[in-house]
């Protein structure tokens, strides 16, 4: 591109920068989303109130949703651009494939990323669009005298299905895989790393990634194995 900005963003380093910055946004979303989800452990009223607040944002919620969608598109789109170039740069592979230094997390970034994308689609269809179980849309409960969507009951019902829970936990593990490389690595891409800091970033990245996994997985695990929200009937 002729624009100076385009020259920058579409250079090898610029493209990675886009991936890193969109990565930061997505990680922030994942963290925020978890904090919201964790209200589940404080009973139906809190999580339902949280859901109500979110929906009350109205058009702003759509702005956020579209921004997130755009972020995902950029994150994936630029990754694909980079990937295409990387393929072209190595037309003939080595006969002996010996991974050097590279971690399994780094090597599987594209794979984990794409599976996570599929998971997001399922997750949205499941809990946001209610396409999997249309009945979820009709779950209502009383919150301070107001009829609201019963998110709590929906989550418990959803995770009571071992297959659904299993798929969630597996997908979340892949998210953690993805972030195990992604978080530590983005500091390198942003140019904020050094020899001293790199191990710190990498360790922190992995801790954060698996802490997120633990936080998210706690919900299906507690529903499925510890009977949390057992009183809820379909």
């Amino acid at each position: 591109m002729d624009l100076p900005l385009g020259k920058w963003l579409f250079s090898s380093l610029g493209k990675k920068l886009v991936v890193a910055i969109t990565g930061i946004i997505l990680v922030s979303f994942v963290v925020g989303h978890l904090l919201g989800n964790l209200t589940f452990f404080f009973g139906p009223d809190l999580i339902n109130a949280y859901a109500l607040k979110l929906h009350a944002l109205g058009p702003l919620l759509w702005v956020i949703r579209l921004a997130l969608l755009a972020t995902v598109v950029l994150h994936i789109g630029f990754t694909m651009l980079v990937w295409k170039e990387n393929q072209a740069a190595r037309p003939q592979k080595y006969a002996v494939n010996a991974p050097i230094q590279t971690t399994i997390f780094a090597r599987t970034m594209r794979l984990t990323g794409l599976i996570v994308l599929a998971f997001i689609a399922f997750h949205l269809a499941h809990f946001t669009l209610h396409l999997i179980n249309p009945s979820y849309a009709t779950l209502h409960t009383d919150l301070d005298g107001q009829q609201v969507h019963d998110v709590y009951r929906m989550v418990v019902l959803g995770f009571s299905n071992p297959f659904v829970s299993g798929f969630y936990i597996l997908s979340l593990a892949l998210v953690a895989f993805h972030l195990s490389h992604g978080i530590g690595s983005l500091f390198q891409t942003l140019g904020l790393s050094s020899q001293t800091l790199r191990p710190v970033y990498e360790a922190t990245g992995r801790i954060v990634a698996w802490a997120l996994f633990a936080g998210y997985a706690a919900i299906p695990v507690s529903v499925l194995f510890f009977g949390l929200g057992k009183g809820v009937r379909p």
């Binding site: 380093l13 990387n86 072209a88 190595r90 991974p99 780094a106 891409t189």
Partner: peptide
């Protein structure tokens, strides 16, 4: 025509 960096660190 060199590729991009994926922070694999095979280079180092």
């Amino acid at each position: 025509g060199f590729g991009n960096c994926s922070n694999y660190y095979a280079c180092e």
